[in-house]
Design a protein around this nucleic acid. Structure first.
Length: 101
DNA sequence: CGCAGATGGCTAG
DNA sequence: CTAGCCATCTGCG
């Protein structure tokens, strides 16, 4: 199923983001928690833009868990370049850029 | 190669 | 706010 997760996530267009829950639903899995792990240790770094995945409330989520602050800035910068505005560590137009499968 | 521990986000009270 | 849940990932022998 994780394979599907990657596949789904790869479908996310530039400038859009998704939530762990949405992915879980898309892959027919209730363990959206596992998505966090998958993205954290994203083995498909270039194929799967894990930085486009956020929490259900618009926060970037576990991306700041380990590299407190530094990685966050990086992700935010990447998303910002794609046209996603950030409010601190939360997405501003989250509902707008939110991509539904 | 196999097992166990730990992680990560969402829901409910 | 805290605790629990499910699926996955990592480390060690």
């Amino acid at each position: 199923m994780k394979n599907k997760v990657y596949d789904i996530l790869r479908k996310v267009p530039k400038g859009r983001v998704t939530t762990y829950k949405e992915i879980a639903k898309a892959v027919d899995t209730k363990a959206y928690q596992a998505i966090g792990q998958i993205l954290k240790r994203n083995p498909y770094a270039p194929d799967v833009p894990c930085h486009r995945v956020v929490r259900s409330d618009g926060t970037i989520g576990g991306f700041r868990g380990r590299r407190e602050g530094k990685a966050v800035t990086d992700k935010k910068n990447m998303l910002k370049k794609e046209g996603i505005e950030f409010e601190r560590d939360r997405i501003k137009e989250f509902e707008v850029v939110l991509f539904s499968f």
